[in-house]
Every structure is written in structure tokens, then in C-alpha cells.
Design a protein around this nucleic acid. Structure first.
Lengths: 224, 224
DNA sequence: AATATATTTTAGCCTAATCTAAAATAATCT
DNA sequence: AGATTATTTTAGATTAGGCTAAAATATATT
């Protein structure tokens, strides 16, 4: 199936995917930051990705990139492996949240297709990974979901906590203290337009939870 | 503990270790063959390994290398990870014998120290891997064993099948047909000096097993 | 001991992925 | 609109690891 793209190629494609799921284009600087390389290196790599045949990205000078459908296939494949690995490290090898990220990244470009599928089977073909992140299926379909940003919910609306942007373990642990973890139901009690705080009723919590905009902007919920 | 040597360095060190356990020096050509690179590349790499500080190999031009004790530490560390991985792939992920080898090799230089130790724990801190290969302990001691080559046993002597040289899955499956696998007791019934065949009594087998020199030279047994 | 063969080393070159510094372009602010 | 600031791209260099072809050394054979 998938040709043998280098591990580095794959990193770029995964990153671009993540930066463009919401529809925009991925900018050189953003990619550089995520990948911790210089913008010059990104430009370089992007141009190589664009001149593969078939091209893996659509590149417009000074205006960032999007994935072509070929690029997206590769990205989804990588993302599948990556998220399976995260889950695997946590569930089978007992890794803590914090350690999962780096190790999965390193392993990601070493594992074979076969390894990925073995892991998937051992884990019971999961469709959700850590932090509730969606795992593309074997034939690279993203599990359907009606996700909105918690920040955009208003009083009376409710949903199920799904995942957090950026997979930041620190934030994750912070939210856990308020009973906020993937799968938990929540509803919005109040919203104050001045500070953009949201007052939430969280399933299993007595007291209401108040979160600021910088936090709610990070949280995805599946709307009911 | 161990500095961050590159994955390629580690491959070389592991290979050199395996080629020198029996006391000799590893020759450029042998290393090249195992690693499937040209002899020129090997010379190059060897020289780099020799000029690390501290040096990882003892190199004498035109006369191959041995590991320094620093090099051996690294090699044992790699070997530990490698053999843990092999076992892990087989036991936990259900890999067949044949597939284990390549995947373990690829994974080997991607995994962290921590990963290795997690795997070790999940497997129950094993001291023997696939094919009965010895796994260095966490503090890099090789499990003690009184190994001899089956080829050197004579009528009346006996031992326990331990492992095969080169970890060739094909040969391994062949031997399995005669009940010969790690842990099985065997004794030598007869030896013919003309063709160097050995006649064996194998535990659990009715008929005696006759093996040629090219096969017995590949088999290690733990002498009683 | 001299030659032939085999192995190892050197020398020079290549590619992928990165970097820095300078040039080009885009975005922002008065 | 023009000037300043920020971002992106180019150009040229570097490093690791590998290659080929030719030179050096060792080993084997007569």
C-alpha cells in the first residue's frame, strides 16, 4: 500500500495534517515550531514534498501548504500508528501521560505496517486514543464526530468531553482535578461576556466548574 | 548512564560483540556482510568508533577490531534491548519467528532505555530470549552458562539444547521437526569421523537423529 | 622467495536533513 | 501610500552514513 516515505517526511505530513484539520493552510513558521527546526528547513522539506510524484502537499510560496489527498493518506496512516502507539505505551507498558508523547514520536517512524496492525489487534481495534483523540481506521477513515470547541457552547447547551487541543499533559492533569476527562458529560450553566468565562456542570462533580477562555478554547466536546 | 550513541554506532557494536564473543577479532569483511554494507563503509565507521573518547573499539589496521570495555557496555545494552524486543514481539504481539528479526532490528535503535525496562518488566525480567539466546541483565551481566558447540560433543556426552548460531529461522524450524528446540535434553550416541555426522538421542523422540557437521556446528548446548 | 589472490584502506563523491545569514516578500501601522 | 516589521525563501555550508574505484597490505600458492 503506502510507499516508503522517510520518517522525516512522515513527521512533516502528520504535523501539517494536524495544523490543517480545521480547514486552513499550515504556515512555515507553525510547522517549524511544532517540529523544532528552523523555518528554512521547513521550506526546504515542503518543496521536496511538493515535488514528489504524486505531490504530497499543495505549496504556494509564502502562503503555506495543505495536504493533497495522497499526502493526507500518508498523514492518516502515520497518525493512526502514532495514536495506537500512545495508547499501547499507556495501556500495555504502563507509561504515564507525560512520557507517552516523546516515546511515541520516536517509535512512530521505526514501526512497520504490520507492527501497527498487531498493536491495534492487541488493543482491540480502538477508535479513540489517549485524551480521546480519534484514531483513523485501518482503511484510513477518521471516526465520525460532531466536535465543537467548548469555548463556543452557550448556556443550555451540553456535550461530552472529547479531547484537548495540543495534547498537553499538564493541562490534562489540571482538568482531571475537576472531573473533566474524555467521555464525561458536561453542560453549560452560564457565560459571562466580559471575561468569557464558562460556568459548567460536570458529571460526577458537586460544585460548578468555572473555566477561562484560554482553557475552554483548548477543549473539544462532542455535541449532543 | 549510557551516552547517546547513534543507532548506527549501536548496530556496529552489537555486530562486533556477536562476532567476538568467542574470543577472536571481528574482521572488516565479516562486519560488512552482517550489516550489508561495503567493507569501505565498515573501515570508515570503525575508525570513528576507535576515535571516540573513550574509544569504543580497539582497532588495528588490517587486523580487525575488538570491543573496549566501554564498547562492550554499549553492545550489551543494545543486545539486551534487541533480545527483549524479539521476545516481546513474539510473546505479546504474536509475531512469528521469521518476522521477529527484522522488526526487532528496526525498533532497536528507536527505543529508549525506559522502554526497554518496561518491556522487561512486562515479560517478567527474562534471562533467555528466543532461540534460548541469553539476555544481559539490567546491569549488563551476561547470564552464566557453560556452552559448547554440539559439534564438539562425543559419544557418551550429553547436554541441553541452548540456541543456534546466527538465529536462522529456517534452520530453527528444521530442527524443530526433530524435537530439537531450546531446553530439550540430548545425548550423543555415535560419531563417525569420516563425515563428522553425530547420532543423537533427543528427549521425547523415538528414533535417533543424525545431523551433519554443518548443522551441529551451528548448535550450542549447555553441557551437563 | 616471488607471484597471484584476497582483503582492507584511502580518496573522492553523493544524498538527506539540517543549519546560518542574507535576500525577498507579505503584513502592519502610521 | 509608504515605511517598518515580521515571515519566508534562497544560497551556501555541514554532518552522518553510505558508495565506487584505486591503492595498500596480507595471505596463499607455486
Amino acid at each position: 500500500m503506502s510507499a516508503a516515505y522517510s520518517g522525516t517526511h512522515k513527521d512533516y505530513l502528520k504535523t501539517i495534517y494536524l495544523l490543517t484539520v480545521d480547514g486552513g493552510r499550515a504556515e512555515t513558521g507553525q510547522i517549524a515550531e511544532k517540529l523544532r527546526v528552523t523555518p528554512a528547513s521547513v521550506t526546504d522539506m515542503i518543496q521536496r514534498l511538493a515535488s514528489e510524484s504524486p505531490p504530497l502537499v499543495d505549496y504556494q510560496k509564502y502562503h503555506g501548504v495543505t495536504l493533497t489527498s495522497e499526502g493526507e493518506q500518508v498523514a492518516l496512516q502515520v497518525l493512526r500508528h502514532y495514536r495506537l502507539l500512545e495508547l499501547f505505551l499507556h495501556e500495555i507498558l504502563g507509561y504515564s501521560w507525560d512520557k507517552v508523547h516523546t516515546e511515541a514520536n520516536r517509535l512512530e517512524h521505526a514501526i512497520s505496517e504490520y507492527f501497527g496492525e498487531r498493536v491495534a489487534e492487541v488493543l482491540g481495534e480502538p477508535t479513540r486514543g489517549l485524551y480521546g483523540s480519534p484514531i483513523p481506521s485501518k482503511d484510513l477513515e477518521m471516526p465520525h464526530q460532531n466536535l465543537v470547541c467548548l469555548h463556543d457552547l452557550r448556556p443550555g447547551e451540553s456535550g461530552i468531553m472529547h479531547s484537548i487541543w495540543d495534547e498537553d499533559p499538564g493541562l490534562f492533569r489540571y482538568l482531571e482535578k475537576y472531573g473533566l476527562k474524555p467521555g464525561v458529560k458536561l453542560s453549560v450553566l452560564d457565560y459571562s461576556p466580559y471575561d468569557h468565562n464558562l460556568h459548567l456542570q460536570v458529571e460526577g462533580q458537586e460544585k460548578e466548574v468555572v473555566l477561562g477562555a484560554s482553557v475552554t478554547a483548548q477543549i473539544f466536546v462532542e455535541k449532543e
